[in-house]
Amino acid sequence: MGYEIHVSRTEEHYDSAENPIELEDWLSYADASPSLSVGGWLGWDEDRQPIYLHTCADDSVVSLTWFEGGIDIKGYFSSDPYRKFGSLAENFGATIHGDDGGRYTATGVLPPSH
């Protein structure tokens, strides 16, 4: 199913700028990851940044981009994206946020915080 998930260090992904994953840290991680490749660019000139692509086991491709202190992952997920990208979130001391409002780690759903 087509879906968007967010990697963030905050309770709500839209507050990512309050406790950001720094762009430089994200770029270093993504450039070193053998499962990610640059598939395009966002922005122009000195402000542009790469769009990273990840090919899933079923050959579907998802995109990963940094935005205001968080990482957005968009695409078609044929399996549980939380388990697939949970280690990425844990690397940054973050959790995964689904569009459904849930928060997840690589091991499963986190209880509501409020």
Rank of each mutant, 00 (worst) to 15 (best):
Y82K: 11
H97Y: 05
S87H: 14
G69N: 12
F92T: 12
I71G: 02
E46A: 12
D99A: 10
D100W: 07
Y104S: 10
G98R: 04
V62P: 01
G93A: 10
E90M: 06
P81R: 14
F67L: 13
Y104E: 06
N91M: 10
T95Y: 09
P50E: 06
F85L: 09
H54E: 04
V62D: 00
E46P: 00
F67A: 14
W44L: 09
L88A: 11
S78P: 13
D80P: 02
S60P: 02
G102C: 11
D100G: 13
E90P: 04
A57S: 12
I51A: 00
D59N: 12
Y82M: 09
E90I: 05
A89H: 07
F67K: 15
Y82C: 08
A89T: 12
G102L: 10
A94P: 11
D59W: 01
S60V: 01
V61I: 09
H97I: 03
Y82T: 10
A57V: 08
D80G: 01
G98H: 00
F92G: 13
G75N: 01
T95Q: 06
Y76P: 00
S63P: 06
D80Y: 02
F85A: 07
D80N: 15
D100T: 12
W66I: 07
F67Q: 15
F67I: 09
V61L: 02
D80A: 04
D72I: 11
E46M: 06
G98V: 03
Q49G: 08
R83I: 03
D47S: 14
D99H: 05
R103F: 04
D80I: 01
T55L: 02
E90R: 15
D45C: 07
D59Y: 02
T65I: 13
G102E: 14
D99S: 14
R103L: 06
I73T: 03
I96D: 02
W44I: 08
F92N: 13
G98I: 02
Y104M: 04
A106W: 01
P50W: 04
S60M: 00
F77L: 02
G69I: 11
E46Q: 14
L88M: 14
G98C: 05
Q49R: 13
G70V: 07
Q49V: 10
L64Y: 01
V61N: 05
T65E: 12
I96G: 05
Y104I: 01
N91E: 10
T95F: 08
P81A: 13
S60T: 05
P50D: 08
G98N: 09
D45Y: 10
D58K: 01
Y82R: 10
F77D: 02
G69R: 08
C56L: 15
Q49I: 10
W66K: 04
G98K: 04
G70R: 13
V62S: 00
F67G: 03
S60F: 00
G69H: 05
L53H: 07
A94M: 08
